[in-house]
Design a protein around this nucleic acid. Structure first.
Ligand code: DCP
Ligand code: MG
Length: 1254
DNA sequence: ATCCTCCCCTAC
DNA sequence: TAAGGTAGGGGAGGAT
């Protein structure tokens, strides 16, 4: 298998998921059985069907304690949904089976919530089931607040272990009522305790211990406490006591086992204690260090550093050692190879008349016995009869990929963690992986299988399905339909014979045993294999099918895992035969149409699936959820880009490109310790994902990297809390048309029609021949990714729904064009096109809405001629310009009316052709070609504010942006999108590059940051150039043109927040980098960081622009927009009330204060209070009052303000105005601070918390 | 009805 | 120490 294979390509669809990763609990893959998982969502559905009526009627004399309460139960709950329902309804309450977005449930009952749900229910009172139970017991409605589901679902997770089972997971359904019930405050206490006890403390398990349950040893798999690396001691002890035996590959002998065991004893790792040397910290509430600090310390150990993401070669190194990665890769390659072989075969020989309709069939399922273990053991013959397991080491968190039958006799299973395995079998021998040997054995195995004249389908590296119907029927001498006993006998004998021969062959060539299951269909072959298993074969005859299958456990059926097993159990099913008691309807209503039918059929031995069906790849992805320990955002972003390079490589290998990119993130759960149980493992996490529709299918790593980074930023996750990252491409298309990369991709042949291709150069940058990749996305900033564009279609051209108005799309932009824009830009343009969707989905995507633009922007201008592809193909800076132009427009509606641009543009000179880039998109675009209008004016403009950020900024700041981080907002909030990060960013292409002058004028820290960013960008880009497949044009040179490598433009500016400042950063803030970023960007947008703005060409232009608007005026634009302020205030309030993260809110306020104080001493802190009115009310009024003014500033605002465009004023005048404006700005910022502060205080009051100091 | 997105689940 | 990847099936629920 190691050979090289190719594949074909494509089609579309798919995405990733998000949920909480619970597993830690059991063995990851099979072994499981952990009790609790059972329910899970099944209930979700079942419950929905009860009717209140019955309940009510049945219980009437209960005190109506729930009068006024309308509840909805989410997820698994200990008193079951039905019970809760009954309790509530019978005690005067209302119950909603479904929560239609806007309905009115007053309370949500849940024991825990997934991040998604959490977000979805953000506006409700979320209480634990105990509230209901205890209220009923008490005979009165107890205060719900005491039963809050803390934080997110995670919070309580800790408590979960209840029955001795390990439920580690957050939501795992299982928790018993008890834990759920006591939870509430109790829970919080525990959490607090935990928090306090940082990582290191060996006691990491505080929670567990407190509860006392902690589970027995087996807990091993739980991420909660068990053998966290920290508690190495524990682990060590355990190990020591057991003495593991590791066989080195070269020599075997158990004798050496001791080495390892010994070492374990020492507590080596940096012990927890270290943990806190923490410098800053100081913070009160959580006395722990931040995740970044922790990671930094952790990485002090060179060995750890080497095995974590910080190592540049981490990805390669990791994949080289990842068995699961190998399994997946092998499988994909085998599949491709076999499919292509089959295709060729069928082509050459037309044969294959399918067996007649109702004919008997003979299918073999062939599989190596404990594959890895068997092959690895070949090198250690003497271990053959001992319990052996294949793993990377004998440490407690090492996973057993495969274990032999001797080991299984002790209860060990594949996927189990070493700790548990050693407990079950102390004498377990651990042998190392030998991937090349597995490939070799597999190669021989497939060779033998392919020698059979049957239809082959690979299942995995060690497993295959072979349809030998034809061979058997031939041997039997019938068409397979007759009932001649003689024929049937001969057929069956033939099948056995084939299997026998195959097993002998494989055994002979590989030295390992394979077992064969034979049956009349895939299902039967598969279940027969189980019985065949150790080194044998078994043919399940037709007349034995029902009995045999009926005696299996439902989970023994393919496709039935813990979740479905639990649902079935709830339906009273344990064995397959029990399924037969259920009607098809019952099954389909409980499990879904397809699943229900499939199960019904499986229970009767029916399976219509054919062997060898061809399939086309629908997605390509790359992810790493181990070893992820970042100290800062840059590392995270660099890593993501590396992953994108990997993804790019895989896309090219598969000859596909895709239109939808999805980022998957594993974030340390709120209640998870900084150190996972498993060494460098992800531990308990929340899984989040977000996707973007790329207007054009691509495989360019730079594009992927930018989009992925943007999405990552939009999550606003503290880098130290990241535990896993992945990128996936879907909506695949063949790479065919243009070469994937050609240097210039220029021409995608197919597409562009129109204009001759030439790079257009708008502006300087042109020169770069651009690599397609480089060009791709124009802006980089963090934009929020809007995935929106929901409607986009395959062809890509479904217009976005830019429905109307919301976006202001500049006049002439064609929706299609918009659709094609890179997402960050697009998002700006489009605000929320998807708002609806947003709502529901998780994504916090921000529908960024541009500021409220008064304008009716709604109308889209006549379609422009911008060819999206073309646009994508442009060099980044050029594209930025173009986009900036649009952006600008959007912001300034005024201009539009006339639409000068439109017309103009068209005519305009430069046509951008696809210069580079990806082209490929065939068809599509051909039609449109766009022309740009003048590039020259970059437009930077924007209201008088600062150069950078333009509208985007504005938009960003609007509510949309300040959305609670983790979750997507629920429907209600329009704002859901968050994209904080993005906001600042930049969209603004206008700014394009950063001039030297401008840089010079920046504060040192910022400047360094920018430079660093640029450097990084450059580095990254280059590499991309060589991607194996194609060589990219060395174009890089281009960069030179601009003083600043283009890409960064403003974005850079906003980038990172300056470390220096915020002292308060120490705390939680660090976890909100994006938030701070957004605030900084927002603030600096109005208050340029550099003392005096510098005259820089770019800048000046920017300022000029400012002037334009601003000037016209007066400065009204001197300060922040009220709506942004209000938005921030609201957001923070939500942070306090819903996210319940007061510290974060306070930190943000402080950050703002700090910024303001810096520029306007005295105003930010207290001074503001005087002038302002007091009370929130006043603040409001104030806002309103000012608002009128402000409108003027807004770019979009329709008010005619805009005025003199040309505004080139003289500097003096400008200066004067500037000063004036400065004063006003100071006042406005002071007001902003006050408003925000009050909002937080108000929230604090609502929560009944004590006072807060800013 | 049918499609689409976003998950969840399963398998090795 | 450990290397917890990856793709497809399918359900829920909204849009069409
Ligand atoms: N959780 C798992 C399950 C499997 N594998 C790898 C190692 C196995 O050897 C190989 C094949 O998986 P099988 O399910 O076929 O298991 P075995 O071949 O080990 O055992 P058997 O087939 O005898 O049950 O896949 C793994 O790494 N991790
Ligand atoms: Mg096997």
């Amino acid at each position: 298998m190691g050979s090289v294979w190719h594949q074909n390509s494509s089609a579309v669809r798919k995405r990733i998921q998000s949920h909480q990763f619970e597993d830690e609990g059991g063995e990851e893959y099979e072994a499981s059985t952990f009790g609790g998982f059972t329910d899970y969502m099944r209930r979700k559905k079942l419950k929905l069907q009860n009717l209140d009526a019955e309940i009510r009627s049945s219980a009437s004399e209960n005190p109506p304690i729930f009068r006024g309460v309308v509840a909805h139960v989410n997820g698994y709950t200990q008193p079951s949904l039905q019970d809760l329902h009954r309790l509530i309804v019978s005690h005067g309450g209302g119950f909603l089976q479904y929560l239609s977005g806007k309905t009115d449930a007053t309370h949500i009952i849940a024991s825990s919530l997934t991040p998604k749900k959490r977000e979805e229910f953000r506006r409700y009172r979320i209480v634990k089931p105990a509230w209901v139970v205890e209220s009923v017991q008490a005979g009165r409605l107890l205060p719900w607040d005491q039963y809050r589901v803390v934080d997110e679902g995670h919070a309580q997770k800790v408590l979960k272990f209840d029955n001795g089972r390990i439920l580690s997971q957050t939501n795992s359904p299982q928790s018993g009522y008890r834990e759920q019930s006591m939870a509430s405050w109790y829970t919080s206490r525990l959490q607090a305790a935990e928090a306090t006890n940082p990582v290191g403390s060996p006691s990491g398990q505080t929670a567990g211990s407190v509860l006392g349950e902690k589970q027995p040893n087996l807990a091993s798999q739980s991420d909660y406490g068990d053998f966290p690396s920290f508690s190495m001691d524990e682990a060590g002890n355990v190990q020591a006591s057991q003495q593991t035996n590791i066989i080195s590959s070269s020599q075997d002998h158990e004798s050496k086992q001791d080495e390892l065991s010994h070492k374990t004893v020492s507590p080596r790792r940096e012990v927890p204690e270290t943990k806190l040397p923490a410098p800053q910290q100081a913070s009160p509430s959580k006395g722990e260090m931040t995740s970044e600090e922790y990671n930094a310390q952790l990485l002090t150990d060179p060995r750890l550093r080497n095995s974590s993401v910080v190592n540049p070669e981490f990805i390669q190194q990791y994949y080289r050692e990842s068995r699961l990665h190998h399994l997946s890769t092998w499988k994909a390659n085998l599949k491709a190879q076999l499919q292509s072989a089959a295709a060729q075969k069928s082509q050459s020989q037309s044969k294959r008349a399918k067996p007649v309709a109702g004919a008997r069939r003979y299918i073999m399922h062939v599989d190596f016995d404990c594959f890895f273990a068997a092959v690895s053991t070949l090198k250690h013959p003497h271990l053959e009869v001992k319990p052996v397991a294949v793993a990377h080491g004998s440490g407690s968190g090492s996973e057993i990929a495969s274990c032999n039958y001797a080991a299984r006799a002790h209860g060990i299973k594949n996927g189990m963690w070493m700790k548990g395995a050693l407990q079950a079998c102390p004498s377990l021998q651990v042998v190392p992986y030998d991937f090349p040997a597995y490939e070799e054995a597999s190669r021989k195995f497939y060779t033998a299988i392919l020698a059979i004249d049957g239809i082959v389908q690979s299942v995995s590296i060690d497993e295959a399905l072979v349809d030998i119907t034809e061979l058997c029927l031939q041997a039997g001498g019938s068409d397979g339909r007759g009932v001649s006993e003689g024929s049937i006998y001969r057929e069956q004998a033939k099948a056995d014979e084939i299997a026998q021969a195959l097993r002998a062959t494989v055994k002979e060539h590989t030295g390992c045993a394979v077992s064969v299951g034979i049956g009349g269909n895939i299902l039967q072959a598969k279940v027969a294999l189980r019985k065949a298993k150790p080194a044998s074969q078994f043919q399940l005859k037709p007349d034995e099918v029902l009995d045999y299958i009926g005696g299996l456990t439902v989970q023994g059926l393919p496709g039935v895992g813990h979740s479905m097993g639990a649902k079935l159990e709830e339906l009273g099913v344990t064995y397959v035969k029990d399924v037969r008691e259920l009607s098809r309807e019952r099954l389909t209503s409980s499990l879904g149409p397809k699943t229900g039918v499939k199960l019904w059929e499986y229970a009767r031995g029916i399976d219509r699936t054919e062997v060898g069906n061809e399939t086309i790849r629908k997605s390509v992805s790359a992810e790493v959820n181990w070893g992820i320990r970042f100290v800062n955002q840059t590392q995270a972003e660099d890593f993501i880009r590396s992953l994108c390079d990997e993804l790019h490589k895989r896309l090219v290998e598969s000859l596909v490109k895709g239109k939808q990119l999805t980022l998957k993130v594993m974030r340390r759960a709120a209640d998870a310790p900084l150190e996972a149980v498993k060494h460098l493992g992800h531990g308990k996490c929340d899984i989040l994902n977000r996707s973007v529709m790329l207007g054009v299918a691509t495989s360019a790593s730079e594009t992927l990297g930018k989009e992925a980074v943007a999405m990552l930023r939009s999550f606003g996750i503290s880098p130290g809390d990241l535990r896993g990252l992945g990128v996936q491409m879907t909506k695949l298309e063949p790479l065919n048309s243009g070469s994937p990369r050609k240097p210039d991709g220029s021409q995608q042949q197919l597409n562009f029609k129109a204009s001759p291709v030439r790079a257009s150069p708008i502006r300087k940058s042109i020169e770069r021949p651009e690599d397609p990749d480089e060009v791709d996305s124009p802006s980089r900033g963090e934009s929020e990714t809007v995935r929106s564009v929901p409607s986009m279609h395959e062809s890509g051209h479904k217009p976005l729904n830019v429905s109307g108005t919301q976006f202001i799309i500049p006049s002439q932009i064609d929706p299609q064009v918009v659709a094609e824009l890179p997402n960050d830009i697009r998002s700006k343009l489009i605000a929320q096109g998807r708002s609806r969707r947003d709502t529901r989905s998780t994504s916090p995507c921000p529908p960024t809405r541009p500021r409220p633009r008064p304008t009716g922007s709604a109308e889209l201008p006549p379609p422009s001629q911008l060819d999206p592809e073309t646009l994508m193909a442009l060099p980044e800076d050029v594209r930025a310009e173009v986009l900036g132009y649009y952006t600008r427009d959007s912001s300034t509606p005024d201009d539009q009316p006339p639409d000068p641009r439109t017309s103009a543009p068209t005519t305009n000179t430069t046509t951008i052709t696809a210069t580079a880039t990806n082209p490929a998109r065939p068809t599509s675009s051909s039609s449109s070609s766009l022309k740009l209008r003048k590039p020259t004016t970059p437009t930077k403009r924007r209201r008088g504010r600062p150069p950078v950020i333009k509208s985007s900024l504005a938009s960003t700041l609007t509510q949309a942006k300040f959305v609670l981080p983790h979750s997507p907002t629920s429907a209600s909030a329009p704002a859901s999108a968050l994209a904080l990060a993005s906001a600042p960013t930049a969209d603004q292409p206008s700014t394009t590059e950063i001039s030297a002058d401008f840089l010079a004028a920046l504060p040192e820290d910022i400047r360094l940051e920018i430079l660093e960013e640029q450097r990084r960008t450059r580095l990254l880009q280059r590499p991309a150039l060589h991607p194996s497949a194609h060589a990219r044009p060395p174009t890089t040179a281009q960069t030179h043109n601009n003083p600043n490598p283009a890409p960064n433009r403003e974005k850079t500016i906003q980038l990172p927040p300056l470390p220096p400042r915020p002292t308060f950063t120490s705390k939680r803030l660090s976890s909100l980098p994006d938030l701070r970023n957004a605030i900084s960007a927002w603030y600096h947008a109005f208050n340029p960081p550099a003392p005096g703005r510098v005259p820089d060409p770019e800048q000046s232009s920017a300022s000029t622009a400012d002037t334009e608007e601003g000037e016209g005026d007066d400065d009204e634009d001197a300060g922040p927009f009220d709506e942004d302020v209000v938005s921030l205030a609201r957001y923070l309030k939500r942070v306090v009330l819903e996210e319940r993260d007061l510290e974060k809110a306070v930190a943000v306020v402080r950050w703002l204060i700090w910024l303001v104080e810096n520029d306007y001493p005295g105003i930010g802190s207290d001074g503001f209070i005087d002038g302002g009115s007091t009370g929130s009310t006043s603040s409001q009024s104030k806002l309103e009052a000012s608002s009128s003014q402000e409108d003027a500033f807004r770019p979009p605002s329709p008010s005619g303000k805009i005025t003199s465009p040309g505004g080139l004023q003289q500097q003096r005048r400008r200066q004067q105005r500037r000063e004036l404006r400065r004063q006003r700005a100071g006042k406005r910022w002071g007001d902003a601070v006050r408003i925000v502060k009050e909002s937080v205080l108000e929230a604090v009051g609502d929560r009944g918390l004590g006072e807060v100091e800013f």
